[in-house]
Design a protein around this nucleic acid. Sequence first.
RNA 1: GGGCGAUUAGCUCAGUUGGCUAGAGUGCCAGCAUGACACGCUGGAGGUCACAGGUUCGAGCCCUGUAUCGCCCACCA
Length: 1041
Amino acid sequence: MPTELAKTFDPASTQEQALRLWDEHNAFHAEPTDPGKPYSIVIPPPNVTAALHLGHAFNNTLQDILVRYHRMLGDNACWLPGTDHAGIATQTVVEKRVLAEEGKRRTDFKREEFVAKIQAWKDQYEARITAQLKAMGCSCDWQRQAFTMDAPRAKAVREAFFRLFKDGLIYRGKRLVNWDPVTQTALADDEVEMEEVDGHFYYLRYPLTDGSGHVTVATTRSETMLGDTAVAINPKDPRAAALRGKRVILPIVNREIPIVEDEYVVMPAQYGGDPDDPKAQLATGFLKVTPAHDPNDYEIGRRHNLPVINILAPDATISDKHGWTDIGEAHFVLGQPSEHARKLVVDWFKRNGLLEEIKPYRHSVGHSYRSHVAIEPYLSDQWYCQVTEPRMAGAALRAIADDQFEGRKIPGKADTWDGGMRFFPSRYARTFQSWHENIRDWCISRQLWWGHRIPVWRLPEGRLGERLPLAQFEAIVEKLAQWQADGRIALTQRAERDQARSVDIADRSLPYTFACVHDPNDREVIDELERHGAAQDPDVLDTWFSSGLWPLSTLGWPEETPELRTWNPSSVLCTSREIITLWVSRMTMFNIHFRNTLPFRDVFIHAMIQDGHGQKMSKSLGNGVDPMDIIASHGADAMRFTLAHMATNTQDVRMPVDLVDPWTGETFAPKYVTDSAGYMVAAPIQESPKDPSKKMVSSYGLASGKIKPTADMPLAKNTSSKFDLGRNFCNKLWNAARFVLSNIESAPAEAPDESKWSLADRWIISRFNRTVAETDDVLKNYRFDQVARAAYDFFWRDFCDWYVEAVKPAMRDPSRAGQTANVLAAVLDGALRLLHPIIPFITEIIYHRLNEIRPTRGLPNRLECPHSGISTQHSGLLIKAPWPNVGSFAEAAEHIFPNVQEVIGVIRNVRNELKVPPKQKVDVYIAAPPEPTRQLTENREMIEVLATVNLKDVHPDLTAPAGAVRAAAAGVEVFVHPGQPAVGDTNLAEKRCAELKKLADTLRGRLSNDAYTKKAPPHLVQQTRDQLAQAEAEIDKLGCG
RNA sequence: GGGCGAUUAGCUCAGUUGGCUAGAGUGCCAGCAUGACACGCUGGAGGUCACAGGUUCGAGCCCUGUAUCGCCCACCA
């Protein structure tokens, strides 16, 4: 550790030193037995798919500010870090990588081999993510680092699944799922993104079997007609009666299908439909019903008991191998991808004179959030968690704090849950609420290899009892019954829809039975099951199942550990709004169901960082910024400060992205192009602004995968000039600290004597106290921008611009330097504490140096500031130092100091107008009423130094000196004598006169309005009168014509 | 289709229950290498608060409507 602060601020070495100090003291670690009020945050575990981006940096900076703040407050603060295995996302990334590098597909490997590859990827990125978080200064308790698939978390998942299974909240159902044909897995509803697509409306004719004509159906997906099992018409449609009981012949496959009547069908306008309904304008009144490939049709099929015919293979090609037998003439589409089949089918209709019309149509189609291909509604067997149950969604609704609940709340026991969960900003409570009011059961199985294997063994299809000798079968049944009674297994049967069916063990045939095994090491049970042909379900659980347990599993659940008792519920969840439904919901339901506690008391939803065009930052657009690049170019503290400063109350914040020219190191705005999806993206190849012959690759070029940077054409890193704000601030802090420290060091040590404090001393201490109070206040509502602003204004504007400048003469005067140094040391100490949660590295290192120079500091607790707010308690480390108490305020000083500031401002203004050289002192005379005269005289030195003047005279009856320029401020008259022939505008008083007259007119207008004087609050009216009087007095004094 | 948010200085944003002549940072202009800092200091210019109505003594803020942008939710042929 260097004993002096380096001449220029070097973020890298500062970061390194601070990290070492914290590490040596194990400063981030907490134990449940530690003193203090419990305060805990569980990190939203980043996916191990990729390195962290700026959004993560934002999210984690805010959490770290909270944790550091509460640690300083004396709370027992613990931040639990970890990562998420992110099933589908990670597997997809690795599959792509393996295909690109080895030319092999997942299916070319054994399951264990491929999982090992993903595991290797996970290890690599988990390490990288951890390194990034550490570099950002995140004070996570690294001894408690978790991963959603490590052993303790696997145990929690297993326990949770078993309990839900036993409680009848998990069931097997054949349902239409969102099928991703590329990754070949089911997706949850919220993993599907709607995208606008240009398509067509095809009008297809289906002949009636009796030869009396045809009906025309309209569809955007003509290929699904192969699986049609009915045509529906609205019973109110006037044509319905004539068609009742008739059937149509389905072209191509020659399947006879009924015409059914269902109110769901939209009628065209001419048959009674709503003419304003855009759908009515496209509709023919006849709806083809394809239960296997459309969610609505599936419902119609249920209502009319229609067969369900699946025509697709899992890869979304047309196939007769998955439940479709009557293929008729459809050989020509077999094996075709559905999109191509769509055209082939239309061509067939055209050739056979059955195509009536094609209309262009733009509509939204579900796409996989992972592979971005169109989702196929696909019929398959999946596991569901019955979140529609009152025990789940109902509990989540009851968890909402009463005053954030819209409408009448179902009576519940929110009062046992600390008054409920609060959202910040409160509007997000409604997102949460309406999600649970409209929730549907959650499909929790995924056809992946990377994830928690579903701990269910399927007994062989059919009735086990029919396959075994009776005695043997009876023995199994006895065993199963005993194991179930002992809690070693739970049994269920497949339910067609919507509910779990418990197994009646007395029904000795055991049809379609599933056994969930409680303990993964219970070989006796597993071996016995497998001996009879039972096999473990090959699927894994949805990632969000393990994430949903995160607040519990990170603290050792299902064991009721001291950690769990201390830190659950956690204090706050910090996250972005996109996962309120995906994640917050599930944590709430699980935490309540398993432990009857909230997962967290507060939910803070922060803004989303977009690029300069209002687009989400994403890898594929290449507009994402790597926090490590910012740390390298600006420093970690600078990044944190800027991010905190951006954390406003709104939904989105914009971060215009610049590029760093690798040739010159300079920053420039990239050239943009519009990509095929309409996004503004940086042109793949950029020119150096200095030398257009030098080219570079933008990160969009890199992300598009086509362009690889080379030595001749290097990569231009993303950055943003927004971080200059933080960098400048840190630089200012560093230099101000250097100055203050060197002054303190050379000042004589004296016992603090408050009677010797100047106006500036009292003022800066009072301002400090205000800033602490404001920070405390504003942090309760998670307004990090206001915290950053308050700290910035206090430190730069008040402390550096005014206090340090005002105090310079005193520091040069040995008789006063000792006392001033006391105040300087105390205020610097306080400022470091105040700033530490936002910019921990730089403050820790400066604090270290301050401790060396002034091991004891603090202010006497009496007179005008009986409580300075600046603690005398010290600690070796700032991270462990107490947060300042709010001291009292020096009202008088806060009132007088601005007057002096204003006088100084006016003099500076006049000097500038008169073009007086900066170093040249000028003579100043001030005419003021007795009280201001006293104040100004007392602060003569400050005025002289800060305005570079000789304050010749201050007097109530001062007469204007010849040749002086007259100006006015704070109710006083200022005469500036340039001492040489003045250059520029010498008639400043006239300018001021114009301003004053305009103001006086406004005020007079307001007062002449009777309604105003009668209705406005009296203090405002009085204030207006006072202002007018003051303006008029000044006008009078200046002799404004 | 429903809901939410945004629209304030060239740019990025503050503006807390309506009440000074609407603020900051950055950029711009002018001056300054002043013994902490040029990542700095001093001063300055720059805004019909998206638009149209309304409520009020008083509207950037509240109400109604319009426009543009963004996000979330929704099984819309």
